[in-house]
């Protein structure tokens, strides 16, 4: 049973002779680090600060799961044997919840939940997926916030990219003038400029993916250390990469086409500044 307790933990000053083998507990890695506890240490656990408790031995260290719902929770976790916790906090023969394993298909899960809810008295069965949605509502809010920030960033990037591409193409005005004077058709010139713009956009976005991956690595390292969690904060997926490259490509082509069209409509000698 997972129990979240605020427990007063104090290392016993000296080994005590106990009539029976002491109970064992598992504690958070973070608690072990903060309190300087190690495997095999003997500590006293009690249900409230200062109350007499039980002497127990730390038998295991537990690493937190990458659960977004726990990201900002600072309290430590201690895991005890069910009967031990029940007696320690005077809980009697009660539990807060049961976890029921079923076959993984959704029909079985739904059926089991329905049967429990219709048959049992005083219980309510919930699907784990529903509980996950409920408990990760904080994360859902953060996710929506990130999406909104992402849209603003995409708009800013798009304008930036459009501007740069226009400038880049306009730099080629003398080349375009020379091509036109040599008799190259306007269509060919536009194609060549658009192709160049698309190439630059793709190369730039690939470099951007690299920069993003490096930034993501730093973000993960930093926040995993800050919140002491294995949770991944920045994840670059295939869809994100495709979106970034696709957006850059479209913007590059549009900007290249707009600028090239304007250039080929200008008399070549005017492009030369004559």
């Amino acid at each position: 049973m997972l129990a979240i307790l605020l427990l007063a933990l104090s290392q016993s000053a000296a080994a005590q002779e106990a009539p029976a083998p002491p109970r064992t507990i598992a504690i958070d890695e973070r608690l072990a680090a903060d309190a300087g506890l190690r495997l095999g240490d003997r500590v006293t656990v009690s249900a409230s600060p200062g109350a007499p408790g039980d002497s127990v031995v730390i038998a295991a260290l537990v690493r937190r799961r990458p659960d977004p719902a726990e990201i900002a929770r600072g309290e430590y976790r201690v895991r005890l044997h069910l009967t031990h916790l029940q007696s320690l906090i005077g809980y009697g023969d009660r539990v807060d919840r049961f976890a029921v394993a079923t076959a993984p298909d959704s029909a079985t899960i739904a059926g089991a939940a329905d049967r429990i809810n219709s048959a049992a008295f005083g219980f309510r069965a919930h699907r784990s997926s529903d509980i996950a949605i409920e408990s990760s509502s904080t994360f859902a809010v953060v996710s929506r916030f990130h999406r909104a920030i992402g849209v603003i960033t995409v708009v800013a990037s798009a304008i930036f990219l459009l501007c740069i591409m226009l400038l880049k193409v306009e730099e080629r005005r003398r080349d375009v003038a020379a091509l036109r004077l040599m008799g190259i058709s306007a269509r060919t010139v536009i194609r060549s400029v658009v192709l160049e713009a698309a190439g630059i956009a793709v190369l730039g976005s690939i470099a951007g993916v690299g920069v993003g991956a490096a930034a993501g690595w730093f973000v993960n390292r930093h926040y995993q250390a800050v919140y002491r969690t294995p949770l991944l904060f920045s994840l670059i997926t295939r869809d994100i990469v495709l979106f970034a490259i696709g957006l850059a490509l479209v913007l590059g082509i549009v900007a290249g086409w707009l600028a090239a069209r304007r250039l080929v409509r200008t008399p070549p000698l005017a492009l030369f500044g004559r």
């Binding site: 708009v155 800013a156 304008i159 459009l162 501007c163 400038l167 306009e170």
Partner: peptide, 13 residues
């Protein structure tokens, strides 16, 4: 056009 784009870009930033 160039100035307008720059102003827009800076405004979003």
């Amino acid at each position: 056009a160039r100035t307008l784009l720059a102003v827009l870009g800076v405004a979003v930033s």
